[in-house]
Design a protein around this nucleic acid. Structure first.
Length: 566
RNA sequence: AGGGGCGUCGCCAAGUGGUAAGGCAGCGGGUUUUGAUCCCGCCAUUCGUAGGUUCGAGUCCUUCCGCCCCUGCCA
């Protein structure tokens, strides 16, 4: 075969998703010299994994095509928004590794302009003040299959509308008494075009504008125009906004905006075994089913950060799931793979015994302390070495010892051998039990000459287990997390997602024994506790006196999948 | 007088008229002082359905079926 036949020299390039294709084409055709995107969260809650997808998409496109991405808080509803959320959101975006262009923007920065444009619409006879209340408006709106009816206030004169709108602005009407509506088409099959409200009265204090306004623009009236003001070229949002696009374009066409932004929609992220709706996440927090927005079991960015997930893992996940227009439910296994993959490559190894069982090495002097040197990572010499004190008594995992077991069991068994990781091969002689018959200690022997070598007699150990000195260790608490929901689709059907909560999603272990080197662990760093999983210091409960480690994720474990575990 | 979307392997997803990429999961094997990592192999004669156009259709046309979104003074 020739090189041309095999194509062996060709580098596989990652296929472009539809947004990338659109941007590339726009750039090639010179529609824009530079693209500008934006991430537009409403500061009414914490960001979650679904937002991470949007963040990676918007900032990612800007980075990839040499453009810019703004961070703009969509703050048109002061009743539900606050500063706590804007600060948390800024922190989350930065932590994910992205930098917004220029200063943080707020839709409220444009309230004066938006107000002027509303007046412009009135002057053009394209907007009117309507006195219908909420219930009446619903009646006039029609239904999905029936057209709506024109409001009796639809034909007010420009002068009257101007005067009324000014009174609205001046606070002369109560909330709900009236609203400003765009005059489009009450018989449109697209309900968003049936004279949508563009300004409503809300006598609420705004976290950015204080008490300057008592009327606030609707999402539809604010979003596109804000995009135009900022020169956004590609306004990327989720599928449910597709029906709003005609309205988005209508405002852009009827107002003297400085630019023509285009809206594109992609499918929002759904993940099994979890919920990604702000309302439900808020309920979990408010009803204390979890320990706050950053509970390690939450799919929030702050929760995943506290859990030990890394920015790189989250970005890789968003890269792998793709960007399309079809709804789907991504397997949480993909997220878990990304976390393990990143941590395996970068987390230094350490040992920690979760459920200690004392082992006395009878042929080791009681006062002896041997200093062992071990690698911090099996495949990365650059991560260096560390030392471990080896003593007469050590702790091993309770489940790593059995008085008898079949050949599948690769740990310590009475009369058999096992290697203590980075140390010696030992052979168990006897199990000591308490009155109740529980094994409380194992007496074993070191097989001489097995440090870094196999036993001279040729009897190799069955496996390798982790351990920690029983006299020189760090006592700590370890928190094991499992899926928050038992059900694959807690959101689906008529079920209550709260009924799907996993009662065993958190297991708190006390008296865990970690190797001394972990005393210098710091928040933000991850470690692999060998044979156990990846762990990190808990940012909320850990103290110098009492370290608390969170299990970020267990190691992949194929043991017992197809064979008898006994 | 409803409108707008979407259907390619268990899950995600390439494919843009020329003969079904890749990843996750799974399965089998090798290496291993972590039952991890790593490595090798297997895993869609078929693209929701039924017709049609074409030398050729996952890609074009038509039919039907299924799923999602829309009747907030939320975003």
């Amino acid at each position: 075969m020739s090189a041309a036949d095999t194509g062996s020299t060709e580098v596989k390039t990652k296929p472009l998703h539809f947004i990338q294709q659109i941007i590339r084409k726009d750039l090639e055709q010179g529609l824009h010299k530079k693209i500008v995107t934006r991430f537009p969260p409403e500061p009414n809650g914490y960001l979650h994994i679904g937002h991470a997808k949007s963040i990676c998409l918007n900032f990612g496109m800007a980075d990839e095509f040499g453009g810019a991405c703004n961070l703009r808080f969509d703050d048109t509803n002061p009743e539900k928004e606050n500063e706590e959320f804007v600060n948390a959101i800024k922190q989350d975006v930065e932590w994910l590794g992205f930098k917004w262009d220029g200063a943080v923007r707020y839709t409220s920065d444009y309230f004066d302009q938006l107000h002027a444009w509303a007046i412009d619409l009135i002057n053009k006879g394209l907007a009117f003040v309507c006195d219908l209340n909420a219930e009446q408006m619903r009646e006039y709106r029609g239904t999905l299959v029936e057209p709506g009816k024109n409001s009796p206030f639809r034909e007010r004169s420009v002068e009257e509308n101007l005067a009324l709108f000014e009174k609205m602005r001046a606070g002369e009407f109560e909330e709900g008494a009236c609203s400003l509506r765009a005059k489009i088409d009450m018989s449109s099959p697209n309900i968003n075009l049936r004279d949508p409200i563009i300004y409503r009265i809300k006598k609420a204090h705004h976290h950015q504008t204080g008490d300057k306004w008592c009327i606030y623009p609707s999402y539809d009236f604010a979003h596109g125009q804000s995009d135009a003001i900022e020169g956004i070229t590609h306004s990327i949002c989720t599928l449910e906004f597709e029906d709003h696009k005609p309205l988005y374009d209508w405002f852009i066409q009827n107002l003297p905006v400085p630019a023509i932004p285009r809206q594109y929609e992609f499918a929002r992220l759904n993940i099994n075994y979890s919920v990604t709706s702000k309302r439900k996440l808020k309920q979990l927090v408010d009803e204390h089913h979890v320990d706050g927005w950053n509970d390690p079991r939450m799919p929030t960015i702050s929760g995943m950060r506290r859990r030990g997930f890394t920015p790189a893992a989250l970005r890789e996940f968003c890269e792998r799931i793709g960007v399309t227009r079809s709804d789907g439910i991504v397997d949480v296994g993909v997220l878990e793979f990304c976390v393990r993959d990143d941590l395996d490559k970068n987390a230094p190894r350490a040992m920690c015994v979760l459920k200690p069982l004392k082992v006395t090495l009878t042929n080791c002097p009681a006062d002896q302390v041997e200093t062992l040197t071990v690698h911090n990572h099996p495949n990365r010499a650059d991560l260096g070495d560390r030392t471990l004190p080896f003593t007469q008594t050590v702790f091993i995992e309770q489940e790593d010892f059995r008085e008898e077991a079949n050949k599948k069991y690769k740990r310590l068994v009475t009369g058999k051998r096992v290697r203590l990781r980075g140390a010696y091969v030992i052979e168990a002689d006897e199990a000591i039990k308490d009155a109740a018959g529980n094994i409380i200690e194992v007496r074993a022997r070191i097989i001489e000459g097995t440090l870094g070598k196999d036993p001279a007699d040729g009897v190799k150990p069955k496996g390798v287990i982790h351990w920690v000195s029983a006299t020189q260790n760090l006592d700590c608490e370890v928190r094991l997390y499992n899926r928050l929901f038992i059900d694959e689709a807690p959101d689906a059907g008529g079920k209550n997602f709260l009924d799907c909560i996993n009662p065993d999603s958190l297991e708190v272990l006390q008296g865990c024994k970690a190797e001394l080197s972990l005393a210098t662990a710091s928040v933000g760093n991850s470690y692999q506790f060998e044979r156990q999983g990846y762990f990190c210091l808990d940012s909320k409960y850990s103290t110098t006196e009492k370290p608390v480690f969170n299990r970020t994720i267990s190691l992949k474990d194929s043991f017992g999948k197809t064979e008898d575990q006994e």
